[in-house]
Design a protein around this nucleic acid. Structure first.
Lengths: 164, 164, 164, 164
DNA sequence: GATGAATGAGGGTTCATTCAT
DNA sequence: AATGAATGAACCCTCATTCAT
């Protein structure tokens, strides 16, 4: 809290006028970052037809957000960590809003026979996992974001994994 | 440190005869768990022909290790988290030994034309990501480990993602 | 201060326009309560003849005030505590006004030979102490205030202690 | 805690090896002081015949302890304060051990017809109150402790208040 | 005069680390 | 080598006080 207060040019006590505890403050920061990210990731999805097309766009949006807002993206990632997972084995807890957003797409895609016949939750895990591979690879090499060939391979991989 | 010392039936000070700091001790524990896991994951791979076949076996080994040695696996997972990644955007740092083990397979597979023409590092990220999806899903539902149909879908997904 | 300000429907800062510190504010509250109590305790004493009669009436008045104005009485009591006494060993500091009021009665009673030949200050201590015993006992059992027999025993005890 | 630690020439953290909290530490100090005081007050009582004689001896013991161990006595007095009383109107809570010690004397004295026919609890309140008057008066004027005439008047007052 | 957001010294507590035994 | 009592810097949090509005 001292460090944050110093960085924010604010007295330590001031935080406690707005948040009851350190945890509440951190949660609020995280929620803010996630909200911005979810918003960015969902941009334009409604106008797209087809589950895999939507998912590819979502991956593109996610990578774009991480490059434009590296801090917000990094903060959000801090809470995707396995400690959350090591609990009950679900990552819904922290990534809840991302998962919910994707869940609808998955269910529709399964119903229409576009996606593999697997539980929507598992399809979500697969999508976030395969997406993460490219996401982290590109964050590590930002110039690759403009590599249309690589991105096409990413989308193809998403389709390979999820499409029937 | 108190808690660990109590559990270990050892005086707190004794740790400092063997490790210079708490961090070094934790690192050693992590390294031990990773070594056991890498060992288990690599078991039998030499006798298998073909990159995808090796990778599928590696996934099977990883899931098996997590079920037989849940503590070691959980400790290892605690350090795969994004904080590590959020640094330089690579997960090589902590998962180094797993990545190195897989890297050789990837390079050979690419050279022989069995795998997609992507950088070995990216193929590694994809493999670990897609593997993680099934890995976490099965840890959360351990009885699924014996579900041959599900496991076959997992292997098929690995092949879909990586094979040319 | 926050709590008091909230209860008083006043901004915290406003207090500092009237009192230089929290301590001064609390002191003022205490002084107010004591003033009301001293006033009530002294009611009608002038018309009574004899030191012991006056003291018995004062005890009656004190108990009556505590029952009718429990908050004011409780606040006043909070400061009769031994911390005040533990200082110089006198309770004059806080109970000053009560002691002064009683001191005159004591001196007159000693002069007229009605009271024991002890220092007025000691007679005051004795009176307040013996009074406190009944005072606290009755506050704890308010219905006893109407018990004429008990009250008569109280008065008799006061006389036993102080009268020659 | 900082101040106490400084005075005690001990690091703040050290206290927490022996007491789980500040409150527990303070309680322990208080308990120690009370134990020593109760011990001193009860010295020699068993060999004395008669309730009032025992009570007079107890008062003498209490004053003696306060003069010989002023710190312990002052600490103990800090917790006899009215906040305790302002609760349910009984001072048993903090002075418990003193009250219990005296209670037995009172019950025996009432049974044998030596003391007034009042509840033992009230007799206890009266004794502690009248005792406190002399106790505080003498603490404030320590040289009076050797004034045999004054002490005799104190004992006489105790008898006046409690004896039938 | 009144406000209340902001302050920051100080509160009790924790815990990785040290060192005399 | 092993111990564990002692340390003290750092932790999160509170609250009496201030001052720009």
């Amino acid at each position: 809290m001292s460090e944050i207060a110093g960085e924010a040019q604010v007295a330590k006590g001031t935080f406690y006028l707005y948040y009851p505890s350190k945890e509440a403050l951190i949660d609020a920061v995280y929620d803010y970052c996630q909200e911005k990210d979810v918003e960015a990731c969902d941009t334009g999805l409604a106008e797209i037809e087809g589950a895999t097309a939507k998912l590819c766009r979502r991956l593109e949006n996610a990578i774009h957000f991480a490059l434009v807002h590296p801090n917000e993206a990094a903060i959000e990632r801090m809470y995707l960590s396995s400690p959350a997972r090591s609990g009950v084995g679900t990552s819904y807890v922290r990534q809840k809003r991302h998962f919910e957003s994707v869940d609808a797409v998955m269910r529709e895609g399964v119903a229409k026979g576009e996606l593999k016949d697997l539980p929507a939750a598992l399809l979500g895990e697969i999508f976030f996992s395969i997406g993460a591979a490219f996401y982290y690879y590109i964050i590590a090499n930002p110039n690759l974001a403009d590599d249309a060939v690589l991105m096409e391979k990413a989308y193809q991989t998403v389709r390979d994994c999820l499409a029937r």
